[in-house]
Computed example of a mutant assay.
Amino acid sequence: MKLNHLNLCVPDLPEAITFFQSLFGFQLIEQKGTVIAVMEDGHGFTLVLSSMPSSLDEDYRYPKDFHLGFYVDTTTEVDEFHKKLKAFGTASEHAPKLMRGGYTLYFRALNGILFEVTCFHI
């Protein structure tokens, strides 16, 4: 069995599309107005972005430990991603560091969603 897609609800669909295209290399496959966007990562995974319903409180947040994790092959890729993140205008609280058996960068974006970029080949 293989996980092939995930539907992520976001407060600002255009911001999320730009974020995933610019930082993670996702390609926009289909968009239905300001409601839904379908993106692919080029490795067989599909990310569906959906606008959060306007009925939700503006301060809605995912649970504290909810996160999206991305694995890369080298520590250099983690460091380069950190530079790319800064250039994009998204700050991380900490620089990448060794933790839990990998070289990892954590940061929050898109209204507080936690992201992880890790290399386990140290």
Results as ranks from 00 to 15, higher is better:
Ala87Phe: 07
Lys84His: 15
Ala91Trp: 02
Leu6Pro: 01
Gly44Trp: 04
Gly25Asn: 13
Asp59Trp: 03
Glu58Lys: 15
Ser50Val: 03
Gly112Arg: 02
Leu3Tyr: 08
Tyr60Pro: 03
Gln27Pro: 03
Lys32Phe: 11
Asp12Asn: 14
Ala37Tyr: 02
Phe45Asn: 05
Ala95Met: 10
Asp12Lys: 08
Cys9Trp: 01
Leu56Cys: 15
Asn7Lys: 03
Leu6Cys: 12
Gly42Asp: 06
Ile29Phe: 02
Phe20Ile: 00
Ser50Leu: 05
Lys83Gly: 07
Thr34Leu: 06
Leu8Cys: 02
Ala91Arg: 06
His43Leu: 09
Arg61Lys: 14
His121Cys: 05
Leu23Lys: 14
Phe88Asn: 00
Leu68Lys: 04
Thr74Ala: 10
Thr74Met: 13
Ile122Phe: 09
Ile113Thr: 15
Thr46Cys: 14
Tyr103Leu: 14
Asp79Ala: 05
Leu68Gly: 04
Glu116Cys: 12
Lys97Gly: 09
Pro53Thr: 06
Leu98Pro: 03
Phe24Glu: 02
Gly102Pro: 13
Ser92Asn: 04
Phe19Lys: 00
Phe120Leu: 14
Glu77Val: 14
Pro11Gly: 14
Tyr60Asn: 06
Ile113Tyr: 07
Leu23Arg: 14
Phe115Trp: 01
Leu23Gly: 15
Thr34His: 06
Ala109Met: 04
Glu40Asp: 13
His43Arg: 10
Gly101Thr: 13
Phe26His: 01
Val117Trp: 02
Asn7Trp: 01
Val117Gln: 04
Gly33Trp: 05
Leu28Ser: 05
Val38Cys: 05
Ala109Ser: 11
Pro14Trp: 04
Gln31Arg: 15
Pro63Lys: 08
Ser54Gly: 15
